[in-house]
């Protein structure tokens, strides 16, 4: 489903790039990208949601190829990818319901369908009682659960999580990883970039890809 062929992507001196990346990720894979800061984990994720395009090689996600994609097709691709970030990237001026519903408005869904699906998803993630809360009034773990709800609501082909537990306490971190594992067990690909090796152990059947200085050093 996701294929990297001889991919190289370099930035200015401040950002970590990647090189010689050859990688295949299947539709129901759970993948951990591990490595120290600057190893290229986030760059790999950015290449998948085409926030940056490779200097060499190609990245293919379903029918979208990095060497052929038009700028106007990038939003279409991103609507099929669920994204979770360390800093949550929630909209501070909107409540939990609105933060999740925006994904469906972007995809032109009908209001009634949006209402039903958002409430259902928030209840599934034990956020039903927080519907009208603004992000500022939520704990870190709850914020990340809202971000997961926003990612899941559009029924994506893959969930990308960039250091999703970076700002969370250990208990909330475990809850988030367990939730992502649960999502994966429903046959959805999940790719998590982390440098917390303790979390990797919680998903025994996950593939582990280690990166260092922008290159893959091992794949398990």
């Amino acid at each position: 489903m996701i294929n990297f062929q001889n991919v190289a992507c370099t930035f200015g001196s401040q950002d970590a790039g990647v090189k010689n990346i050859n990688l295949n990720i299947g539709e129901d894979d759970f993948v951990f990208l591990v490595g120290p800061n600057g190893a290229g984990k986030s760059t790999l994720l950015r290449l998948i949601y085409m926030d940056c395009l490779p200097d060499d090689g190609t990245v293919q996600i379903k029918n979208y190829r990095s060497d052929k994609i038009r700028e106007k097709d990038i939003p279409k691709l991103r609507r099929q990818i669920g994204m979770i970030f360390q800093d949550f990237k929630l909209l501070d001026d909107r409540n939990v319901y609105q933060n999740v519903a925006i994904s469906l408005y972007i995809s032109h869904h009908k209001t009634r369908k949006i209402k039903n699906e958002v409430h259902e998803k928030l209840n599934q993630l034990n956020l039903g009682h927080r519907v009208h809360y603004k992000p500022d009034n939520l704990s870190g773990g709850e914020k990340q659960m809202v971000a997961i709800a926003r990612a899941l609501i559009k029924d994506p082909i893959v969930i990308l999580a960039d250091e999703p537990t970076g700002d969370l306490d250990p208990r909330a971190s475990i809850e988030v990883i367990d939730q992502l594992h649960k999502i994966n067990q429903e046959n959805k690909a999940v790719i998590v970039a982390t440098h917390d090796y303790n979390l990797v152990k919680r998903v025994p059947d996950a593939r582990i890809i280690s990166l260092k200085d922008g290159e893959i050093t091992s794949m398990i």
């Binding site: 106007k72 001026d93 972007i106």
Partner: peptide, 13 residues
């Protein structure tokens, strides 16, 4: 601008 970049990330045109 933070809202705009988030909207772009989740697929807004």
């Amino acid at each position: 601008r933070k809202t705009i970049s988030t909207l772009k990330l989740i697929g807004a045109t």
